[in-house]
Design a protein around this nucleic acid. Structure first.
Length: 274
DNA sequence: CGGACGGCCTGGGAGC
DNA sequence: TGCTCCCAGGCCGTCC
């Protein structure tokens, strides 16, 4: 499940490999993932353009071309965007292939087809409906403990819901929300407004810590995630609660509990988190 | 406002 | 072995 650290890892690998290369040809095999349609126009518009830079906002990947156009990519659950040798076998569920000027290819593959790419003019980027509503970048300077305090103030919803709300903090998903709450000792169902100042400070630090650690480990490859060169990450080895329901808490040995919060499975320690 | 739920999709695993 | 069912969870839309 690509969340902020995974998207950031893809961004870094693609920036390393694809910046400076231009698009020779675009093949679209699944029109619904290439917007706006018709896909022939999508392909034609990209032909001849050069990748200038790769940016990230929340879980969105932004590929800037020629300073005038941006490919807005969201990997959702199972999306992959991989720089590949052209003679490597094309994986099942590959929906878009871009042939690059050095003979390599950029391949967009997405088993479940929740993800996709959208061509947006640079001047319209700030008005993109997905990007427009995004909240603060959790690794940016604007995300302070005081800011987290403002975001939770008066919120009657559960803290897990707040952390997953992309319009408040952009980039956390189920894995890092659970991991951050565990490190901060906070129960996922705690009402956000009820958190004491010291808990907010701990949570703020925990969020940045779990994201930074995961980026350092090239992301979490629990199921489908790979980076921009098809490599798995290593952060799954550092997870303390996600996917460990029923196993012993690393702090106190209590079996980790599982609960459905905000429609998602939440794993936590019933003793360490309150 | 907040929460619950369905829809979008496929594959892997459990259970029979 | 093979069938059915459930689950994985990002985001949007709808409804209460």
């Amino acid at each position: 499940m690509p969340e902020l650290p995974e998207v950031e890892t893809v961004r870094r690998s693609l920036a390393k490999r694809a910046v400076g290369l231009s698009i020779v040809n675009v093949s679209v095999f699944q029109p619904s993932v290439a917007k706006p349609g018709p896909y022939e126009d999508f392909a034609a518009a990209l032909r001849g353009m050069t990748f200038c830079s790769f940016a990230r906002r929340g879980k969105y990947l932004l590929a800037h071309l020629d300073g005038s156009v941006c490919i807005v990519v969201h990997l959702r659950m199972t999306g992959r965007w991989v720089f590949s040798a052209a003679d490597r076998p094309v994986p099942k569920h590959t929906h878009v292939i871009m042939d690059l000027s050095d003979g390599h290819q950029l391949r967009f593959t997405d088993t479940r087809r929740f993800g996709g790419m959208e061509l947006v003019a640079a001047e319209s980027l700030s008005g993109h409906p997905g990007l427009l509503k995004l909240g603060v970048e959790p690794l940016g300077d604007d995300f302070t403990a005081a800011e987290l305090g403002r975001l939770t103030k008066g919120k009657k919803s559960k803290i897990k819901s707040v952390l997953l709300d992309q319009t408040l903090v952009a980039g956390l998903g189920n894995i890092y929300a659970d991991e951050a709450l565990f490190r901060a000792g906070i129960h996922p169902e705690r009402v956000a407004a009820s958190l004491e100042d010291d808990r907010i400070v701990r949570l703020h630090a925990a969020i940045r810590q779990v994201l930074e650690e995961s980026i350092a480990n090239n992301g979490t490859s629990f199921r489908d995630y790979v980076d921009g060169e098809g490599q798995k990450g290593q952060n799954q080895l550092s997870l303390k609660v996600y996917g460990r329901s029923g196993q012993a808490c690393i702090n106190c040995g209590t079996p980790l509990a599982k609960l459905r919060v905000a429609g998602r499975t939440s794993v936590f320690c019933p003793r360490c988190q309150e």
